[in-house]
Simulated scan of single mutants.
Amino acid sequence: MHLSYCTNVHPAEDLDGVIAQLHAAAGPIRRAAGLDLLGVGLWLPAPLAARLANETAALARLRAALEEEGLEVRTLNAFPYEAFHADVVKLGVYSPDWTDPARLDYTIDAARVLAELLPPGGEGSISTLPLGWREGWDAAADRAATAALVSLGAELRAIRAETGRVIRLAIEPEPGCVLDDVADTVAWLDAHRQRIDLEHVGICLDTCHLAVSFADPRTEVERIASAGIRVVKVQASAALHVDRPGAPAARAAVAGYAEDRYLHQVRERAANGPIRVDDLPEALEVLPASAPWRVHFHVPLHVEPEPPLRATTEVLEAALDAVVAVQPVDQLHVDVETYTWSVLPGVDAEHPLDLVDGIAGELRWASARLAERQGQPA
Results as ranks from 00 to 15, higher is better:
residue 257 Y to K: 02
residue 98 W to F: 13
residue 125 S to G: 15
residue 348 D to K: 04
residue 178 V to T: 08
residue 67 E to I: 05
residue 85 H to S: 14
residue 276 R to L: 12
residue 80 P to K: 13
residue 72 E to P: 04
residue 295 V to T: 06
residue 80 P to C: 13
residue 227 A to L: 01
residue 24 A to L: 14
residue 295 V to E: 02
residue 112 R to M: 10
residue 12 A to N: 11
residue 41 G to A: 14
residue 281 P to T: 09
residue 377 P to I: 02
residue 43 W to Y: 15
residue 13 E to W: 09
residue 365 W to N: 07
residue 138 D to K: 10
residue 271 A to S: 08
residue 93 V to C: 10
residue 271 A to H: 05
residue 32 A to N: 01
residue 230 R to D: 06
residue 131 L to F: 07
residue 306 E to M: 04
residue 161 A to D: 15
residue 114 L to Y: 08
residue 202 G to A: 11
residue 105 D to K: 13
residue 153 G to N: 12
residue 167 I to S: 11
residue 119 P to Q: 08
residue 148 A to R: 14
residue 378 A to N: 04
residue 140 A to G: 10
residue 26 A to E: 14
residue 120 P to E: 09
residue 84 F to M: 14
residue 145 A to R: 02
residue 189 L to C: 04
residue 38 L to P: 07
residue 369 R to T: 06
residue 321 D to N: 06
residue 270 A to S: 12
residue 91 L to M: 12
residue 80 P to W: 13
residue 264 H to S: 15
residue 362 E to H: 08
residue 115 A to F: 09
residue 277 V to K: 02
residue 341 W to E: 04
residue 3 L to A: 00
residue 219 T to N: 03
residue 330 D to S: 05
residue 312 T to S: 13
residue 350 E to Q: 08
residue 130 P to H: 07
residue 89 V to F: 15
residue 31 R to W: 00
residue 273 G to N: 04
residue 240 L to P: 12
residue 204 C to V: 06
residue 290 S to V: 10
residue 291 A to L: 04
residue 269 R to I: 04
residue 157 R to Q: 13
residue 199 E to A: 14
residue 267 R to S: 00
residue 44 L to G: 11
residue 117 L to P: 07
residue 129 L to S: 06
residue 328 P to V: 08
residue 252 A to M: 03
residue 179 L to F: 00
residue 264 H to K: 03
residue 149 L to E: 11
residue 145 A to Q: 04
residue 106 Y to M: 05
residue 338 T to R: 00
residue 174 E to Q: 14
residue 119 P to K: 07
residue 180 D to V: 03
residue 86 A to C: 12
residue 54 N to D: 12
residue 321 D to S: 07
residue 77 N to D: 14
residue 32 A to E: 10
residue 137 W to L: 02
residue 266 V to T: 02
residue 36 D to Q: 03
residue 30 R to I: 06
residue 34 G to V: 01
residue 327 Q to G: 00
residue 359 I to R: 00
residue 197 D to Q: 09
residue 120 P to Y: 03
residue 134 R to T: 04
residue 229 I to F: 05
residue 208 C to I: 03
residue 377 P to K: 04
residue 89 V to M: 15
residue 236 A to R: 11
residue 166 V to F: 02
residue 86 A to Y: 13
residue 188 W to G: 01
residue 256 G to S: 13
residue 288 P to F: 06
residue 50 A to H: 13
residue 162 E to A: 15
residue 99 T to Q: 13
residue 34 G to K: 05
residue 320 L to S: 09
residue 369 R to S: 06
residue 113 V to E: 10
residue 337 E to S: 06
residue 134 R to N: 07
residue 257 Y to N: 08
residue 321 D to K: 02
residue 129 L to W: 02
residue 229 I to T: 06
residue 332 L to R: 06
residue 240 L to R: 08
residue 308 P to K: 05
residue 359 I to P: 06
residue 187 A to I: 01
residue 140 A to V: 09
residue 363 L to S: 05
residue 176 G to Q: 11
residue 345 P to K: 07
residue 270 A to W: 01
residue 45 P to S: 08
residue 137 W to K: 07
residue 142 D to V: 00
residue 251 R to F: 09
residue 91 L to N: 13
residue 21 Q to P: 02
residue 181 D to G: 12
residue 23 H to C: 07
residue 192 H to D: 01
residue 197 D to A: 09
residue 216 D to M: 05
residue 22 L to D: 10
residue 78 A to K: 07
residue 260 D to Y: 09
residue 325 A to S: 15
residue 237 S to N: 15
residue 163 T to E: 11
residue 295 V to R: 01
residue 26 A to N: 13
residue 146 T to R: 11
residue 370 L to A: 01
residue 201 V to R: 01
residue 312 T to E: 10
